[in-house]
Amino acid sequence: MADIFTTDHLPGRTILYNHREYLFFSGTSYLGIPQNKEFQQLLIAALSRYGTMFGSSRNGNLRLSIYEEAEQQLAAFTGAEAALTLSSGMMAGQVVANYLRAQQYSFLYGPCTHPALWHEPAVEVPTVSFADWTNQLPDLLTITGHAVIAVNSIDAVRSEAYPFAWVNNLPTDQPITLVIDDSHGLGVLGDAGSGIWRQIKRPPNVRLIVTASLAKAMGLPGGVVFSDAETIAAIRHTAFFGACSPISPAYLDAFVRADELYMQARGRLQQNIALAEGLLLPTGLFRQAPGYPVLYTERDELYPFLLENGIFIYSFAYPTPADKANTRIVISAFHEPEDIDRLAHCIHELR
């Protein structure tokens, strides 16, 4: 297991540890929004209006209009009919799981499905490949009644894109709810970063629900659920949602004013990804989902080698300490071309 670093400042292009500066290629701040000075100024202005937190249920008798405004903007961005924000991506997944569990539906999970979508504390997810699992789906869907299929949009750990053409071939003689965790795709993948929603073609009997953390590419401390308006209204009126603390309204106020900042950040990220792909993929050491800012490697010795050379990358066991450590390089919009050049130079030295 990699050594644990502790620091007292937000990582950006670099981190400072034991009086030494390291280039930082880890984390999930793909668009660099938390480090973006202009976004910080929007947030400072919003804090003067909304304070640090709205201490109330979203279903209370006093409501802040910024929630509905931001949710409409998020829904329009992804192409969904409606959206609902929560205090984290985990809460977004759990409000959906609790809603569907209450309907007594049968659950099927894809490989590596994030625990946010689990409908009970311990769920056994398949250990086969995603392709093999989709081939098995016709046999798995022999269950009667309403079926829930819960999957991730992408294997973010190993940077593997999941295909979804199989959705359009699902049985049409039973109701199905497809729940997709798009935490790592929203903001960076899909049309202009709009995520997975527009990419899913499905029969009329398949209801789509997409959940996501907003704390990754979007840089907001919260989560979101996308679906049709009827489903979102039903989830909103559950006791689970009513008891949840909401996302801080100041962050949503900054979000609705930051369209141009997000667009600029996506442009910088795409340039950085293209540069990293051109320099690193030819080494044969990495696997990467097209256009995704994560490059995964089986060569775990890359971590200590780069650390010795002043570069900090992602390398730890996930999602539990018992899992194998995984090593990957994360590209962000805040990186400069010379950062990626230096990274590539060190990796070529290792080879």
Rank of each mutant, 00 (worst) to 15 (best):
Met1Ile: 02
Asp3Thr: 14
Thr6Trp: 12
Thr7Gly: 09
Thr7Asp: 00
Asp8Arg: 13
Arg13Val: 00
Leu16Ser: 14
Tyr17Arg: 14
Tyr17His: 15
Phe24Gln: 02
Ser29Ala: 15
Ser29Asp: 15
Tyr30Met: 11
Pro34Asn: 11
Gln35Thr: 13
Lys37Asn: 01
Gln41Thr: 09
Leu43Trp: 02
Leu47Thr: 00
Tyr50Lys: 01
Thr52Pro: 00
Ser56Phe: 04
Leu62Val: 15
Leu64Ala: 03
Leu64Cys: 04
Leu64Glu: 05
Ser65Pro: 00
Ile66Val: 14
Gln72Leu: 09
Leu74Val: 05
Phe77Val: 02
Ala82Gly: 02
Thr85Asp: 03
Gly89Asp: 09
Gly89Leu: 07
Met91Trp: 04
Gly93Phe: 03
Gln94His: 13
Gln94Arg: 14
Asn98Trp: 07
Ala102Glu: 13
Gln103Trp: 05
Gln104Trp: 01
Tyr105Trp: 14
Pro111Gln: 14
Thr113Asp: 01
His114Pro: 00
Leu117Phe: 09
Glu120Thr: 15
Val125Ile: 13
Pro126Leu: 10
Pro126Arg: 08
Pro126Thr: 11
Ser129Arg: 11
Phe130Thr: 09
Ala131Gly: 10
Asp132Thr: 14
Gln136Cys: 12
Ile143Gln: 14
Ala147Gly: 09
Ala156Thr: 06
Ala156Gln: 06
Arg158Ser: 06
Glu160Trp: 02
Pro163Ser: 13
Ala165Pro: 01
Ala165Thr: 14
Ala165Leu: 10
Asn168Ser: 15
Leu170Trp: 12
Thr172Leu: 09
Val179His: 07
Asp181Glu: 12
Ser183Gly: 12
Gly190Leu: 05
Trp197Val: 13
Trp197Gly: 03
Ile200Tyr: 10
Thr211Phe: 02
Ala215Gly: 15
Ala217His: 08
Gly219Cys: 07
Leu220His: 06
Pro221Asp: 08
Gly222Lys: 01
Val224Met: 06
Val224Gln: 05
Asp228Ala: 06
Asp228Lys: 05
Ile232Lys: 07
Ile235Ala: 05
Arg236Pro: 00
Arg236Asp: 02
Phe241Ala: 05
Ser245Ile: 02
Pro246Gly: 12
Pro246Thr: 12
Ser248Tyr: 01
Ser248Arg: 08
Leu252Tyr: 07
Leu252Arg: 02
Glu260Leu: 08
Tyr262Val: 03
Gln264Arg: 13
Ala265Leu: 00
Gly267Ala: 08
Leu269Arg: 04
Leu269Cys: 10
Gln270Thr: 11
Asn272Val: 08
Leu275Thr: 04
Leu280Pro: 00
Leu280Gly: 02
Phe286Met: 04
Tyr292Ile: 08
Pro293Arg: 11
Glu298Ala: 04
Glu298Val: 00
Arg299Asn: 06
Ile313Val: 13
Ile313Trp: 03
Ile313Lys: 05
Ala317Trp: 01
Pro319Phe: 11
Thr320Gly: 01
Thr320His: 08
Asp323Asn: 15
Ile329Trp: 06
Phe334Asp: 07
Glu338Tyr: 05
Asp339Phe: 02
Asp341Val: 13
Arg342Asn: 12
Leu343Arg: 03
Ala344Phe: 09
Cys346Asp: 07
Cys346Thr: 04
Leu350Tyr: 13
